[in-house]
């Protein structure tokens, strides 16, 4: 759990818009906005490298110092560029450390599942995060370690079985699967008979049936 939120120095942005944000990014800054707690939103920019380092270490609670005044904020959203690699903007929400917030807690699966010894078994992550509620001070600063060494082939691990720390309250259904040991079938890509040749055209078959029915009716007359 986070003991102390990392401090990030930020400056207020006077000029807003795509053009100015782009100039900031080329200068190694990350545009961001702070909002929440019924105060006016503040457009800021912060050092990109330092922010990314903090984010990659897993911190989602930051102490943002704007013009000497520090505010505790939670990372609410990240915007990526078109290739999904670079962070181009960050949303920060003001929080009190005693306030209860809903966050996505990341999971770190540790251990080698027993079921992987079975030929054709693979470990599949269904969800890398679970939705939890906690006080802002208890927002996990790193991924929660989950032991999966007991998982047998074909077995699921559900959200209720994760064994989360007591300060985190699970918000998802307890039977939501999180990961499993899946069996890769020998012949996954069987040639589909329906997919061979020409695909069926919707409407044409019905039209031909109707035409045939009409023909039969006219014969009867």
């Amino acid at each position: 759990m986070s003991k102390q939120a990392p401090v990030i120095e930020a400056t207020k942005r006077d000029r807003l818009g795509t053009r100015y944000a782009r100039r900031l990014r080329t200068a190694g800054r990350l545009p961001a906005v702070i909002y929440g707690h019924k105060k006016d939103p503040v457009a800021i920019d912060m050092d990109l490298k330092q922010t990314l380092l903090v984010l990659h270490h897993g911190s989602r609670l930051l102490s943002v110092s704007v013009e000497g005044k520090a505010e505790t904020c939670m990372v609410k959203d990240l915007q990526f560029d078109y290739l999904g690699t670079n962070v181009i903007h960050m949303d920060l929400a003001r929080v009190d450390l005693t306030e209860r917030v809903t966050v996505q807690a990341r999971l770190n699966f540790i251990g080698t599942p027993a079921g992987l010894k079975v030929p054709g078994a693979i470990f599949r992550t269904i969800s890398e995060t679970v939705e939890v509620t906690c006080t802002a001070a208890d927002i996990p600063s790193e991924a929660i370690p989950i032991d999966i060494s007991h998982l047998e082939a074909g077995a699921f691990l559900t959200a209720g079985e994760l064994g989360l720390p007591p300060e985190l309250t699970l918000e998802e259904e307890a039977d939501t699967p999180v990961c499993r040991i899946a069996m890769v079938s020998e012949e996954e890509e069987e040639p589909d008979e329906a997919a061979e040749g020409e695909p069926e055209v919707i409407g044409e078959a019905e039209a031909s049936d109707e035409a045939a029915a009409d023909g039969e009716e006219s014969k009867d007359e």
């Binding site: 890509e189 589909d192 329906a194 997919a195 695909p199 069926e200 055209v201 919707i202 409407g203």
Partner: peptide, 12 residues
């Protein structure tokens, strides 16, 4: 076998 749709609304 290459993939293709099973049903389509229009042929072309």
């Amino acid at each position: 076998m290459p993939r293709m749709p099973k049903r389509t609304k229009y042929r072309k």
